[in-house]
């Protein structure tokens, strides 16, 4: 029942707005993890079930950056993103590429295994372990008051930073040569080879990018749920987000994440206990019944 605590007076509208804001903020985290799923899926037709665990690992690196290294918040982000981008590329090169060309089942099992190993290894590292850590941010408990409406700066910051990242990614995929090449590779890998695009290197970079996006999600989530070795299970909520958006659609993953986040937040407050955790899956079932390919599904269009 997060959110109920900061609800003061202000009536039903205020309450609704705060729940909405909390939902959007949480949805941003789902959206970013879902985006990571989608990037890898589009590029390599592989579902990376370790995405949530990459997020968890990224959050731990951020924790190390801010506590052990004593970096300021913004540098912590840069540090964690850089480390995890390299980690993602190494994971592709050393773990995924050797199973390239094997049946999809094999590849999926490898990613699940990688997730387990990451979760296990993190608990063995001194200073990380099985404990739960708080993650300091400059926003802490600050609030903005707009008349009767009270908004948490923490949540606004999450939304703003997610929007900034999405804008940056949009510009990258739209205008940068490498970004367009990543799109091209995912649309027609054979043709990408013919054009002289180094397809394997591009896929490696996509893993790096995906791990960095997951890390960003982890950093946004860390102040809310704290940093611990099981925080990666949020991937179980991000996966429905990607499905709702239409697996394989980048804008879809963002919209899907926001929908799941908002529904969950509202369900958690207005519906009886327990509905919060199933809300995401109910949304998935409804969307799949109405639109089997998801809201932004492009499966039909891709087969030109």
């Amino acid at each position: 029942m997060r959110g109920r605590g900061i609800l003061g007076g202000g009536g039903l509208v205020n309450q609704f707005l705060q729940l909405l804001l909390a939902g959007v903020a949480q949805g941003c985290v789902y959206a970013l993890v879902a985006l990571g799923f989608v990037l890898i899926y589009k590029a390599t037709e592989t579902v990376n079930f370790a995405q949530g665990d990459l997020m968890m690992l990224g959050a731990f690196f951020a924790l190390t950056g801010s506590t052990t290294l004593g970096l300021p918040y913004w540098l912590t982000i840069v540090f964690a993103l850089a480390v995890m981008a390299v980690f993602g590329m190494l994971a592709e090169r050393l773990v995924l590429r050797p199973v390239l060309g094997y049946p999809a089942f094999t590849v999926v099992m490898v990613t699940i295994g990688m997730g387990y190993i990451l979760r296990g290894v993190v608990t063995m590292i001194p200073g990380w372990g099985t404990d739960t850590y708080t993650f300091a941010t400059p926003f802490a408990d600050a609030v903005i008051r707009l008349g009767a409406v009270v908004l948490a700066v923490q949540q606004l910051a999450v939304i703003g930073m997610t929007a900034a990242l999405c804008l940056a990614l949009y510009l990258f995929f739209r205008y940068a040569k490498l970004g367009v090449a990543m799109q091209a590779t995912s649309q027609n890998q054979l043709a990408a080879y013919y054009m002289g695009i180094p397809v394997r290197r591009v896929n490696m970079l996509i893993w790096g990018l995906s791990a960095a996006v997951a890390t960003f999600a982890g950093i946004l989530l860390a102040p809310v749920t704290f940093v611990h070795s099981n925080m990666g299970f949020i991937g179980l909520k991000a996966f429905p987000a990607a499905v709702v958006g239409g697996f394989g659609s980048v804008p879809g993953s963002i919209v899907g994440g926001l929908i799941i986040g908002v529904v969950e937040s509202l369900a958690g407050y207005y519906l009886p206990e327990g509905f919060k955790d199933v809300a995401a899956y109910v949304v998935v079932l409804i969307v799949l019944m109405v639109r089997p390919s998801g809201i932004f599904g492009e499966t039909a269009r891709k087969k030109v």
Binding site: V180, A184, Q187, N188, Y194, I197
Partner: peptide
């Protein structure tokens, strides 16, 4: 490709969701 061989594949194999211009830019990758 860098050494100087260009390939017009069977069945065209364009990048369907990229614009015509982006397709051409990929040719110059």
């Amino acid at each position: 490709v860098r050494a100087g061989i260009g390939h017009v594949p069977e069945g065209r194999e364009v990048f369907p969701l990229l614009s015509v211009e982006d397709n051409l830019r990929m040719g110059a990758y």
